[in-house]
Structures are given as structure tokens and as C-alpha cells.
Design a protein around this nucleic acid. Structure first.
Lengths: 241, 241
DNA sequence: CGTAAAATTGATCTGTCTCAACGTGGGTGG
DNA sequence: CCACCCACGTTGAGACAGATCAATTTTACG
């Protein structure tokens, strides 16, 4: 199993890939680099001349306000990547950084063009990217309309489902090396309130956290608390609904 | 001046269009239909077999929660369109409806493919769509990290800039037929608080509203109140920064 | 072990929500 | 052409979810 397997498995969820596609993807995944927690990949304003693929670990996209407030816009788990179309723009409007020690692949415009010359890969990229945007829409709904309890539950349901689809969740347990402060900047809550909400989830026997791992004890209960409907995550997948 | 002029002018901001491109776009804009306030264009779950172009008027993308809460995800002003790539998906994950009497064009997959066979048009579509997503990211920041005053100001700065870029703003005045309740569902505030914030903006002599028109009296002051930085709107435009 | 980051807990504060009333202007039918 | 009407805007009072401030404990890691 190569270092790129999660990425390739994820792409395979969005379009069928043949042997030649797989070969090209494996090849492209050659020179991944290791990053540490908090290492910056790109800053808002930087030239947008490369895209990133998280092969292992965890990174995020975020925006900072001048006074230090931070909004996390997206998580990039193993198998996730930045938007390939961003390469057509002159600079980044948001920033990217690692949230945990990660193996991250950097692709140039030429690398990406070579991959996208394969119609299956192009199709997978596009459908993957559409899913990322569907997730962003749902985050806006989350932050805009849901209570703290619903927000945290909804995010956990989403992450669990994403992890499952790439085989990174077993026994309703998955690695989630996020601090409560990072969750706070994702969900637009204070870190203190995230803490209280997580403890409430524990008290309700819905989810527990140990050792940077989340364990869902009552999946149905959690989805209920979140008002979670997974259709936005599956829309672009081969299996359909 | 055709009915499609605002749309075409907007696309022309994202990629150079030649005579043949213009001809095809004009042709495609033939059978627009009139919609009234609140008319539905598509509901979440509907088959995603057409895209929409708002030639005149105002529409929006939104998501509803089962209990009736609504989050508006994007405004479609004259010249704006739904994401063409959505056509590759089986169904909508969000809904679209008119917010004001509008002239709206419906394009089928075939129509869009014909347009996208022109590389300039394809490029314009892509860059337009990237800008839409940059706006969505900024909305998440807005709802997640800014106060009511900042949120309202920021949204007004953004709309003003968008209107200006397609020539729908003159003398710092533009048509904005939104109710306070619609603003509330956009900004994740209550309608009552939107009202108080708008009155505060009026008291500060930054913006006034009359007759469904917004007039910005102190552009610099408004941008300051919002912490507004327009780079996310211009990133994909031909002029650059 | 020591140390710093992260989690936990308690007390208090506040921006915004909710509820409830009243004003108002533009569209419609009589 | 006027009167009604209804959606929208405005205003006030009180409530509350979540923020903030300030310790203290626990955990991770060199």
C-alpha cells in the first residue's frame, strides 16, 4: 500500500479509475514532504502556483482577521487536497497550514495538467471539488443557524462520514488530533464553550475523546442531536444518494 | 443593449471574449423567463439538470433546516448565475428562488456544453465560479467572526463592489430589494437586530436605504466599520489585484 | 521530572434573541 | 379614488446562549 493510497481511494469514490490513471497518480505522489504541527503551507496573498495533497495527517484552510480572529474554512484529512482550480488564480485568498505532523504532496500546474489530461482524473477532481464546496455551504448553515450542541454534533457526524468513506474509521472510532481551540475557530464558538459542549456529549454518552481519537457511542443519537443529513456528502459519489 | 448585457459584461471581467463568444452568449440568452418574488427555481433534492442565469432582478441560493430556519448561501444579482459544474451532479443540495421580479435564463447541459466549447467562455465560467466560492468563504468568516455591525457593513461593501463591477452602481447608490428578514437569514442575525444595526448605520451617516435602494454616504467609513478588503472579489478578474 | 500547552471549572458579563406591540406605506378591490 | 389591508419596518422590555475572565488541573513531551 503506497503513501498515496488514501488519496487515490478517495478519488476512486468520485470517478472510476483505470490502471493508467492509478499509475499516474502513484507517480505524481512521489515527492511528498513532511510538515510539523502549525507549519504553514501557504499564506493569503502568496502566489497560487501549487496545490497540496494531504497524504497523511491533518491540515486546514483558514482566514485571519487583522485583530487575530481566525476562521477555519475547511479541514484537509488524509486523502484531501486543495482546490486544483485555485492554480488558475494569481494568489491565495486564504491560508493553509498543517494542524498535525503530516505528509503532504505539492503539485505544480504542470503536474496537475498532466493528471487532468486523463478524463477520469479530471472528473474525479471536479466532483471532489464540488463536494468540498457542498461541505463549505453546510458549514455556513452550521455556524449561521445551529446551536453549540448541534454545531459540534454536526461537525463530528460529517468528519466521521468522511473518514468512513476513505476507510479511516473503524468501530465508530477515528483519529481526530484537533484541540478544542481549533474546534472553536471552526465552529465560531469560544474554546470554553466547546469544552462544555464536548463534556455534555460525553455525559449524554454520544461521543468520547481519548488520545486524539473520537469514538461515537451512539451514532443515531449523535445524528439526531445534529439534525444531520448526509446527502450533501454523497451527492457527487459514484454510489449516488 | 440586449437583455443579457449584464451577464456578458460580467463574464468579460473574467476572461477576454471575442465576437464569436459574444454571439454564442447572446444566442443562448434567448429564452429567458420572468419570475415573481418568491418563485422557486429549484428545491434541494430536485434533479440538477439545468443551470440558471439571472439577467435582471435578484435571486438567492439557500438551505432550510427542518424546523424552518433558513440560511441564505448566496445572492444572484443581475449577471450572476448558478454554478455550471452543478450540472454534473444528480441533484441540488440547496435551493434557489427569486427574491424579486426577475428575468431568468435556464440553460440545459447541452446549452452549457456548447458555450463551454469556447475556451474563453469556459475560462470565464471557471473564474467566475472561483470568485463565487471566494465570496462563500468570506461569508463564513463574516457569520463566524464578525459582530452584527461588522457583518452588515461587510455585506454592503461586498454588494456595492459587485454592483460596481457590472455597472449597476452609480453615485454610490444601487438597487437592493432585500427585506430586513432576508438580510437576517443571510447574516445569521434576527430581523430585529438587523433593523437596529441598519439604523445605527444611518445614524453614523454611513449608509441609508430608500425605495429599495442603498446609498453609501461614506464609503471609507463603511469599509472601515466592516474591516473590508476587496482582494477576494478581484482575485480572478482580468485587471488583477 | 519539568514545563508548557491543553483541558477543565466557576463566576460574571453581554450581544443578540425573543416576544409583543405599534407604525407605515404601497398595492388592491370596492 | 379612496379605504382597507398586509407585509414590512420600528421600538421597548426582558431573557438567555454563549463570551469573557480567571484560576486550577491534567496531559503530552523533551
Amino acid at each position: 500500500m503506497s503513501h498515496a493510497s488514501t488519496w487515490i481511494r478517495q478519488l476512486g469514490c468520485f470517478a472510476p479509475l483505470d490502471a493508467e490513471d492509478l499509475k499516474l497518480l502513484e507517480l505524481a505522489a512521489g515527492n511528498a514532504r513532511l510538515y510539523s504541527t502549525q507549519d504553514s503551507l501557504a499564506k493569503a496573498g502568496d502566489s497560487s502556483d501549487r496545490m497540496f495533497v494531504v497524504l497523511e495527517g491533518l491540515a486546514c484552510e483558514y482566514k485571519m482577521l487583522p485583530d487575530g480572529r481566525r476562521q477555519i474554512l475547511a479541514y484537509l484529512f488524509a486523502g484531501d487536497m486543495s482546490d486544483p482550480r485555485q492554480l488558475t488564480l494569481p494568489y491565495w485568498d486564504h491560508s493553509l497550514s498543517a494542524l498535525w505532523p503530516s505528509r503532504i504532496l505539492t503539485l505544480t500546474t504542470e503536474n496537475v495538467q498532466r493528471l487532468e489530461s486523463r478524463s477520469n482524473i479530471l472528473r474525479a477532481f471536479n466532483r471532489y471539488s464540488l463536494t468540498k464546496h457542498a461541505i463549505a455551504r453546510e458549514w455556513l448553515v452550521n455556524v449561521g443557524n445551529r446551536t453549540a450542541m448541534e454545531r459540534v454534533s454536526h461537525l463530528l457526524c460529517e468528519i466521521h462520514e468522511r473518514m468512513q468513506s476513505v476507510g479511516l474509521s473503524a468501530d465508530n472510532t477515528f483519529e481526530l488530533p484537533l484541540t478544542q481551540s481549533e474546534l472553536a475557530d471552526t465552529l465560531a464558538l469560544s474554546a470554553v464553550h466547546v469544552n462544555r459542549t464536548l463534556m455534555e456529549l460525553r455525559r449524554l454518552k454520544l461521543v468520547t475523546f481519548q488520545n486524539r481519537h473520537a469514538r461515537i457511542h451512539d451514532h443515531q443519537g449523535l445524528c439526531g442531536a445534529a439534525g444531520f443529513d448526509h446527502s450533501y456528502l454523497r451527492m457527487a459519489m459514484l454510489a449516488g444518494t
